[in-house]
Computed example of a mutant assay.
Amino acid sequence: METNNIVWHDASVKREERNKKNGHESFVLWFTGLSGSGKSTLANAVSRQLFEDNKQTYVLDGDNVRHGLNKDLGFSPESRTENIRRIGEVAKLFVDSGQIVSTAFISPYREDRQQVRDLLDKNEFIEIHVECSLSTCEQRDPKGLYKKARTGEIPAFTGISSPYEAPETPEIVVNTEEKSIEEAVHAIVEKLEAKGLV
């Protein structure tokens, strides 16, 4: 692809100006975990709490993004990597716009998550491991995907026939088997406050 004639244009309104006006830092809350662990539910609950606290927030959800921006991608390892690369670039734009963006993606590979982290500055990527055992996720099975994976209808399903690489040093860990959504939201917001981000 020819990129020699593409020039980055600086915005007239800087991120720092947006952050000052908003009264908070802008950053990514990267929720990662198995299907059924509660990523989307938790990301939306945190976003709701931050919104109620007058913070600028948005949620990028895995399924929603695959309906549009990434509808051309499948679930091969290469497609999963490209899916996360694109989301990382979009999330970076949201950070530049002064928002707190929550992303709810399985994002099974550590290397892919690290590449997104590398796009951002220090304290702009907060990895949240939504911890939940495979057996509990499979019992929950909110979309019926584990059942399909077990019967072979879904050939490359994370946790069953495709690997999930849990974060080794995430900024935040919440176990949705041990904590209610309300407790998990409180724990996350408390840590963000302690870091001086909100």
Score class of each variant (00 low, 15 high):
153 E>R: 06
115 Q>S: 14
31 F>Q: 06
106 I>P: 04
37 S>M: 10
68 G>V: 04
110 R>G: 01
133 S>E: 12
78 E>G: 02
86 R>I: 09
101 V>H: 03
103 T>G: 07
52 E>F: 08
109 Y>M: 12
122 K>H: 13
88 G>K: 09
137 C>V: 06
155 P>Y: 00
138 E>I: 02
104 A>K: 11
104 A>H: 12
111 E>K: 15
156 A>V: 08
106 I>E: 07
77 P>S: 10
80 R>A: 01
143 K>T: 07
117 R>N: 12
29 L>A: 08
54 N>Q: 13
142 P>C: 09
101 V>E: 01
105 F>P: 09
31 F>L: 15
136 T>E: 15
110 R>E: 06
102 S>I: 04
82 E>N: 01
150 R>Q: 12
70 N>V: 03
116 V>H: 02
53 D>F: 03
91 A>C: 12
144 G>Q: 13
108 P>N: 09
158 T>W: 09
96 D>N: 13
115 Q>Y: 11
94 F>E: 03
43 A>F: 08
61 D>W: 10
73 L>R: 01
88 G>P: 03
43 A>Q: 04
28 V>C: 04
156 A>M: 12
85 R>F: 00
51 F>E: 13
45 A>Y: 11
75 F>D: 00
41 T>H: 06
53 D>T: 00
33 G>W: 04
37 S>Q: 02
33 G>L: 01
139 Q>L: 14
80 R>H: 07
51 F>Y: 15
66 R>F: 08
44 N>Q: 13
88 G>F: 02
80 R>T: 02
128 I>P: 10
35 S>G: 04
51 F>P: 00
95 V>I: 13
51 F>L: 14
60 L>F: 14
71 K>M: 07
132 C>E: 05
97 S>G: 14
149 A>I: 01
35 S>W: 05
154 I>C: 03
127 E>Q: 11
108 P>Q: 10
115 Q>F: 07
122 K>N: 14
117 R>L: 03
102 S>R: 02
126 I>E: 07
43 A>V: 05
73 L>S: 06
76 S>N: 03
74 G>S: 05
139 Q>H: 10
76 S>W: 01
126 I>V: 15
126 I>N: 07
81 T>A: 13
138 E>T: 05
56 Q>M: 13
